[in-house]
Design a protein around this nucleic acid. Structure first.
Ligand SMILES: [Mn+2]
Ligand SMILES: [Mn+2]
Ligand SMILES: [Zn+2]
Ligand SMILES: [Zn+2]
Lengths: 143, 143
DNA sequence: GCTACAAATGAAAAGAATTATCATTTATAT
DNA sequence: ATATAAATGATAATTCTTTTCATTTGTAGC
């Protein structure tokens, strides 16, 4: 079950945000689509019923909804990368949200899950992305 | 053990890429840093020894090295998002690399791993990102 | 070492995505 | 109805990445 529009608008008000027609329109558009939508796609969709809405309002609304965890954000690939020399063999990342420290770790935790997903969805899985976000010891002390 | 510069340059040649001073410089810079570096950070670093290198060359080199899996790409947060209404409860994503279809799935596969990482690193973990990338059934047939 | 040639480069422009600015409008509490 | 802070749309500014194209260069074959 996905969150209803009602639940979302209620949560917005509870957190002190005003309920504007523009915000209703964004929520309506995102709630009525089964797909993940990029900000640009959402802009197109909302403009069908609300032609004067500004793109900045789309971004501002998404930011709020994501912060309140009323919408689900997906890593869609694109401008958000950093690189390091590869270690032979697959590994994952533990990242400090404050200072950016990255710790590599490895293991085979996902094989079984991957097989289940293949069976159930028919997907042919090529790879995955697993990252933990948190706070390193020294950043915990500084806070 | 991380890949050595030697291994990387050998792999480049093996795949038919020319070994230019610029590419050596990028490889040297990335190999000599323990951190994950953004393209911009890498550009700064390489320019210290190679002031005339173009930013486009940095991007072009990173693209090749990533494709050959000689460097490790990290999702650094930022401009690469799409959204959907949140489902109550945590879930993850299975994404088709061809058509973009997204399938949600859920489960508690990561609790044990998370605890181990906390113990071993002292991190306080706040969240994680788990996405599988692959090809959906219909895109497999069309290929 | 020379030659030929495709590949690679740097400079610059173009493009895409996101954020900031600011005058105007509007939701909401009183 | 009024007051007020919050929100909006238009626009400009930023930031990040890719494209274009004339020039240079690495390398395979002699
Ligand atoms: Mn890594
Ligand atoms: Mn989702
Ligand atoms: Zn930290
Ligand atoms: Zn597909």
């Amino acid at each position: 079950m996905r969150l209803s529009e009602k639940k979302i608008t209620t949560a917005l008000k509870r957190h002190g945000y005003k309920l504007t027609p523009q915000r209703r329109a964004v929520i309506g558009a995102i709630a009525s689509s089964p797909d993940h939508l990029t900000p640009a796609a959402l802009y197109q969709k909302v403009r069908q019923d609300h032609p004067t809405i500004g793109l900045a309002t789309i971004y501002r609304t998404l930011e709020i909804l994501a912060k309140l965890e009323l919408i689900c954000e997906l890593h869609a690939g694109g401008s958000c990368r950093s690189y390091t020399i590869a270690a032979p063999g697959h590994h994952h990342h533990l990242i400090c949200a404050d200072c950016g420290e990255v710790i590599d770790f490895s293991g085979h935790y996902l094989t079984e899950l991957e097989e289940r997903l293949c069976r159930e969805t028919g997907f042919e899985i090529e790879g995955h992305l697993l990252e933990f976000i948190g706070r390193c010891q020294s950043c915990q002390q500084n806070a």
